[in-house]
Design a protein around this nucleic acid. Structure first.
Length: 261
DNA sequence: ATGCCTTGTCGCACAAGA
């Protein structure tokens, strides 16, 4: 089962690219972030016509997450638990039957958190704490779990072409990186790193200042695997070529393939 | 030091992104 994550930066603006990529990559499950659409505005027909089911948690103008899947999603849940007052659409999860078992998939869009020292950064850290609690709960299922999305965290210096310019950014703060490490310490595996320990693996290149042309990127889109998922990991990849397409998102798809049955 | 681009919302610029 091939499971991918992609911050699409506007599902309507990216529809043509998304359909091209889906046909080319043929993922079984796709976690989307920043769809920037309410549920009713989501171009569902286009995805359904090429064989994908749809679970959306939309929001007007900003944020918004979704899960596309060849199989029908079960037990779809929207909203990250732990703060009923949080209106930002950044979390959706679903279960998929596989043989006699199941795999659980989360699509998450972690807050950016800039500027540091504001309530936006506090919201990011609070969100990460709530997410850690949910990640911990999911381990108790003892099944393959994939936490996929835009984490807005640069885990280590090697995950940025120029780590020095990110030192004062919310994505690279010690608190953000420590919260990321707590997820690892729970027992989750960074799928991309497990598959490719080399530097220079990036998933985001800014639209500005020729970042793509200079390969001035960062790695912030991640798939975290529960032990039962990590046991079954057979391949990982970053579809970097998509960044060179016409009208690209600033993020590219990242994926993992699990041998499940 | 700041903008550099891009999207969506309405608007005839702006917020937010990272």
């Amino acid at each position: 089962m091939k499971i991918a994550t992609w911050n699409i930066n506007g599902v309507k603006a990216r529809l043509e690219a998304a359909l091209t990529w889906l046909k080319e990559a043929s993922p079984d499950v796709v976690c989307l972030q920043e769809v920037k659409s309410v549920d009713e505005g989501f171009p569902a027909d286009a995805f359904e016509s090429i064989g994908y089911n749809l679970a959306v948690h939309g929001q007007k103008g900003f944020n918004g997450v979704a899960i596309l899947s060849k199989q029908r999603p079960e037990d779809v849940r929207r909203r990250l638990p732990g703060n009923d007052g949080d209106e930002q659409a950044r979390f959706i999860e679903a279960t998929f039957s596989v043989g006699r078992g199941a795999v659980h998939v989360v699509s998450l869009y972690l807050p950016n958190g800039n500027p540091v020292g504001t309530e936006k950064f506090a919201y990011k850290l609070g969100w990460m704490q709530r997410f850690e609690a949910r990640a911990h709960e999911l381990l108790a299922l003892e099944i393959p779990v994939v936490l996929a999305g835009d984490y807005n965290v640069i885990p280590e210096p090697r995950d940025a072409k120029r780590p020095d310019v990110w030192l004062n950014d919310a994505l690279f703060q010690p608190e953000s990186r420590a919260a990321w490490r707590r997820l690892i310490h729970l027992g989750y595996t960074d799928a991309t790193r497990a598959g490719d320990p080399a530097a220079d693996v990036y998933t985001f290149w800014d639209y500005q200042a020729g970042a793509w042309q200079k390969n001035d990127g960062i790695r912030i889109d991640h798939l975290l695997l529960s032990p039962q998922a990590a046991d079954r990991r057979v391949a990982t990849g970053v579809d970097k070529h998509v960044r060179a397409w016409e009208k690209p998102s600033d993020h590219v798809p990242v994926w993992v393939e699990l041998a499940l049955d």
